[in-house]
């Protein structure tokens, strides 16, 4: 079967391999690296990772599905994860969520039809002192207000 993951993926994994006493320990890094390339983790990619590590594809799936950061469904170009845990809730994160729902016309967990935005609720991001906070793809945005959020979103291409 033709490989779906890039040479760079295998190069990165090759660099990490000597750092662990077992190859299975590469699973989380491999899933991260693969998701960086493909945006999400379709079954074929997870199958390829399983083959690379030498484990059953079901083992890849059980691990991947345990962690919320691995996207087992496609996500939009911009993946908004708004923290609604205690500290952010106390500082008005629900308003942000409602605002986004209205703005994009989608519910939590959904992606806009143009595949541009995916809206999710996130558990505590560890930015409670600068709440409310959200992740936009890999980046944190803190001390958010509805106006501030709009400014960020409107600046996205």
């Amino acid at each position: 079967m033709a490989k779906l993951l890039s040479e760079n993926f295998y190069k990165e994994m090759g660099k990490l391999e000597p750092r662990y006493p077992s190859k299975v320990a590469l699973l989380l890094p491999a899933l991260h690296e693969a998701q960086k390339e493909t945006g999400w983790l379709p079954p074929e990619i997870m199958e390829e990772i399983g083959t690379y590590i030498g484990i059953h594809p079901a083992q890849v799936r059980e691990v991947a599905s345990f962690y919320t950061m691995y996207n087992l469904k496609p996500v939009g170009k911009y993946h908004l994860k708004i923290c609604t845990n205690v500290a952010c809730c106390l500082r008005g994160s629900e308003e942000l969520v409602d605002h986004c729902k209205k703005k994009f016309g989608i519910e939590l967990g959904e992606t806009t039809p143009d595949k541009k935005f995916t809206l999710m609720e996130e558990e505590c991001l560890g930015a409670c002192g600068t709440a409310p906070a959200m992740m936009l793809n890999d980046d944190y945005h803190e001390n958010l207000t509805v106006q501030g959020l709009d400014k960020i979103l409107d600046g996205l291409k």
């Binding site: 077992s22 299975v24 320990a25 590469l26 699973l27 989380l28 899933l31 991260h32 590590i53 691990v63 345990f66 962690y67 919320t68 950061m69 691995y70 558990e123 505590c124």
Partner: peptide, 19 residues
């Protein structure tokens, strides 16, 4: 990769081991 329970030390170790 997004799991509170990995702050529990043995959950963390399993996660480190790729589980």
């Amino acid at each position: 990769a997004g799991a509170y329970i990995c702050g529990e030390e043995t959950g963390l170790l399993n996660s480190l081991e790729g589980k």
